[in-house]
Every structure is written in structure tokens, then in C-alpha cells.
Design a protein around this nucleic acid. Sequence first.
DNA 1: GCCAACGTTGGC
DNA 2: GCCAACGTTGGC
Length: 144
Amino acid sequence: MAYWLFKSEPFKFSWDMLKATGEAGQEWDGVRNYAARNNMRAMKIGDKGFFYHSNEGLAVVGIAEVCALAHHDSTAEVPTWECVDIRAICDVPRPVTLDVVKNTPSLAEMALVKFSRLSVQPVTEAEYLEVCKMGGLEKPPLSP
DNA sequence: GCCAACGTTGGC
DNA sequence: GCCAACGTTGGC
């Protein structure tokens, strides 16, 4: 049981764009960072993750799930880079902003705050549940 | 294997 | 648009 956070600049690939891909989801390609790749390698089918808008928005706006295990990143010319596929599960009714995360003691240790440049991050179950609660999700979708 | 230089990310 | 943080590269 694991939870994650996927960061994206909305003007490059937004939450709405992920939703538009529907059930099939989207290859989370373009990641060229070993820590982020290793996080994706550790993901299992059905793992849930936050979709976070960086640069503009600065908030957790949705919940996605892993729908394909790590495989070769089709945009990479070398076999080094792998990625998972994710698909949208539901909106976060009240997006949880970075500012709020920073000012919530129970969330102050989140990777989002401590390792702000990591594009694919682990999230603890406690953090996941707390962010869902603050975001107005009555029944957060859980990882298997 | 160290470390300086450099490039990129991302918040402000 | 600036700048701090940090990952990567490359010379030694």
C-alpha cells in the first residue's frame, strides 16, 4: 500500500488533460531524474497519487491511479528511463494549496515541502488521508 | 572519487 | 524575472 504525488506544470500537462485521456490514461513520460524513476519503478497497479500543479496553481487538484507498471519511456532514446501510466480517478473538490500544506503541522514533513524539486514523490498514508480530508474528499480512493 | 561549474526546477 | 536548491557533468 503506497501513495504518491505527480507534479506537472499545468500549461504543459494539466489535470484536465489527464482527465481527457480517460480510462486509458497517460504515459507519465519525460522524467529524467533517478529518484523519480525509482519511485515509479516501485509503483504497483492501483496505487493512488496526487496530481499537483506546479508553477501555476500550486495545489493538489486531483487523484490519479497507476494503470501500467514501469516500462520504457517512449520519449527516451536510452533504456535508462522508465515510466508508469496513470489515469484520473477524481477531482479534489477543494484544491489543497502548497501554502496550506506548509502551514499544516502534520503535513510539514511532506516531500512536497522538503524535496520540492522532486517530480515524482512518495506520500505517506497519513499525509494522503489528511490532504484528502482537507480537500473535501469524504471517501478517499485507497491503494490496494 | 572529488568538487567546481553549469543547467534546470520551481517558488516567490 | 530572479534566485535558491539541487542534480548532473566533466576535469583532475
